[in-house]
Amino acid sequence: MDAKRLLIFGTVARAGSLAAAARELGWTQPAVSQHVRALERELRMPLIVRGSRGTVPTEAGLALLGHANAIAARLRAADAEVAALAETSAGSVRLAVFPTAGATLVPAAMAVLARRSPGLEVRLTDAEPPQALALLRAGEVDAALVFRYDDEPAQPGGPASPLVEHPLGEDAIRLVLPAGHRLVGRQRIHLADLAEERWVGGCVRCREHLLRVCARAGFVPDVRHSTDDYVIVQSLVAQGLAVALLPELALQSMRHRGVEVHDGVVGAGIRRIALTHHADAGGIPALRALLAALVETVPDLGSGPSA
Rank of each mutant, 00 (worst) to 15 (best):
V146S: 04
G119A: 09
A138S: 14
P130T: 04
E24C: 01
E248H: 15
A96K: 07
A160V: 07
D126S: 15
D171N: 15
S89I: 01
L85G: 13
V184L: 14
A281W: 00
E196L: 10
Q155V: 02
P57G: 13
H262Y: 05
G202H: 05
C203D: 15
S17K: 15
G240K: 12
E59H: 14
P30Q: 05
P107D: 10
A84I: 10
R216N: 05
I232R: 15
G158K: 00
G10M: 02
N69Y: 00
S226P: 05
R182N: 06
A96R: 10
R94I: 07
G240F: 05
D171H: 03
A307E: 12
I71M: 15
V200W: 04
V49C: 10
D300T: 11
R137Q: 15
H166L: 03
D151S: 11
A195F: 10
T88R: 12
L301S: 03
L249V: 09
A179Y: 06
E40V: 07
H225I: 12
G61S: 02
Q29L: 08
P159D: 13
L246F: 09
C203M: 14
L124A: 10
V32C: 06
A242E: 00
L95A: 01
A279G: 05
P178C: 10
S303A: 14
L18C: 00
L113D: 08
C214D: 02
P153E: 10
L236V: 03
V220C: 01
E87C: 09
R224G: 11
G26E: 08
D2Y: 08
A195E: 13
L236Y: 07
V146R: 00
L290K: 07
L105P: 00
L64T: 04
V176Y: 03
L65M: 03
A90Y: 05
A73N: 01
A286M: 14
E140G: 08
L301W: 03
R53S: 12
M110W: 08
T58W: 06
L183N: 15
A77S: 14
A3F: 09
D280K: 07
E170W: 14
G158D: 02
T276D: 06
S117H: 08
A22G: 02
G26Q: 11
T28G: 13
V122A: 06
V141I: 05
P57H: 00
L194V: 12
V223S: 11
I48C: 10
G169C: 05
A279L: 01
G185T: 06
F147G: 03
L75T: 03
S17M: 02
L275R: 01
L75P: 02
R116E: 11
L177P: 06
